[in-house]
Simulated scan of single mutants.
Amino acid sequence: MQAATEAKFTQETVLWIKQHTPKLLTFAITRPEAYRFSAGQFSRLGFRDGGGFIWRAYSIVSAEYAETLEFFVVLIEGGAMSARLAQLQTGDHILLDKTAFGFLLPGRFTDGDQLVMLSTGSGIAPFLSMLQQPAVWERFQHIGLVHSVSHASELIFSQRINDLINHPLIGEYTGKLSYQPVVTRENVAGALNQRLPQLLQNGTLATGLGQTFTPAQTRFMLCGNPAMVADTFKTLLDMGYSMHRNKIPGQIIMENGF
């Protein structure tokens, strides 16, 4: 049984770690040659724990074609996995499930020309992966990226987003991108400061992105804490949008399983 279990994962090496705040961590690990994923999916990472294992799912920040796998983690006080990650050092080993999971995939939308990515906290990770894929930029005429955090210090990817203009594969498309930070517990220049449902309801988010949202053209992707996803989803339903399903096309795809 142990051999069968271990056939499902590989042991990888931590290449680098960056602690952005006491709670925010990014790190990269080696990528097995056979490992495949689609931008928007998540990996299961783990450690041996006594006679068993501890596993958690984390969305992948890296592009599909990257040679390494990067992750963005919010450390949770008292969390068993967070305690292990907080002690992680370059050169340490971590377990990687051989299968990537998740259906937060922009290619599932069959129509619409605006893609609006709504995220809180580490929910921005899959969107950063998507934004490194030329196919996403070719598919949509306008892309809006919204990252909502509590404090300005948590907007750790703002410079990376601005630097996409220099990306060799997608730099030519970045004129299609509007990035709107949201900071809910501080007043910060250039950032909005209400929760995403309120910003949708009062039209401030559409204005910030320089767009008009319509069910005919706008497609929403939601990723973040479950309360945000649930409340934003309900708001969008009230505004006339619907869940996208394989056999029933809609305007909303969401992920809160992290």
Rank of each mutant, 00 (worst) to 15 (best):
T90D: 07
L88E: 10
L45S: 07
T90A: 14
F47N: 00
A66E: 15
Q89R: 15
G50P: 01
I60K: 12
D97T: 06
V74Q: 14
I76C: 01
F103K: 13
G91K: 08
F103S: 15
L85E: 12
R48G: 00
S59M: 07
A63F: 10
A63D: 10
L104I: 03
F72E: 04
Q89I: 02
L88Q: 03
L95H: 05
F101L: 12
M81E: 03
G46I: 04
V73K: 05
Y58H: 08
A80C: 02
I54M: 07
G46P: 11
S59I: 07
L88S: 05
T110D: 09
G78V: 09
A80N: 12
A66G: 07
L96F: 13
L85M: 10
I76K: 11
G50H: 04
D49A: 14
W55G: 02
T110E: 14
L69T: 09
E70F: 00
V61Y: 09
L69C: 09
Y58F: 14
Q89C: 08
F103H: 13
L85C: 01
T110A: 13
V74R: 13
Y58N: 07
R56P: 09
F109V: 01
I94C: 05
W55R: 06
Y65K: 14
L75R: 14
A63Y: 07
R84T: 05
D97C: 03
T90Q: 11
A86Y: 08
W55I: 01
R56F: 00
F53L: 01
A83I: 04
G78I: 11
A86N: 14
H93L: 06
G46V: 00
S59W: 06
V61I: 14
D92F: 00
I60F: 00
M81A: 09
R56C: 01
R48E: 07
D49G: 00
R56M: 03
L45N: 03
E67R: 15
G102S: 06
A57E: 06
E67F: 04
V73G: 03
L45P: 02
G78T: 06
V61P: 02
G102R: 04
L105V: 07
E77T: 14
G51N: 09
G78H: 08
A66T: 08
L96T: 10
V74C: 01
M81N: 12
T110H: 09
S62V: 06
Q87R: 13
E67H: 15
L95M: 02
L88W: 02
F103T: 12
D92Y: 00
G107I: 03
A57Q: 08
A80D: 12
G50C: 03
Q87W: 02
A57G: 09
A86P: 08
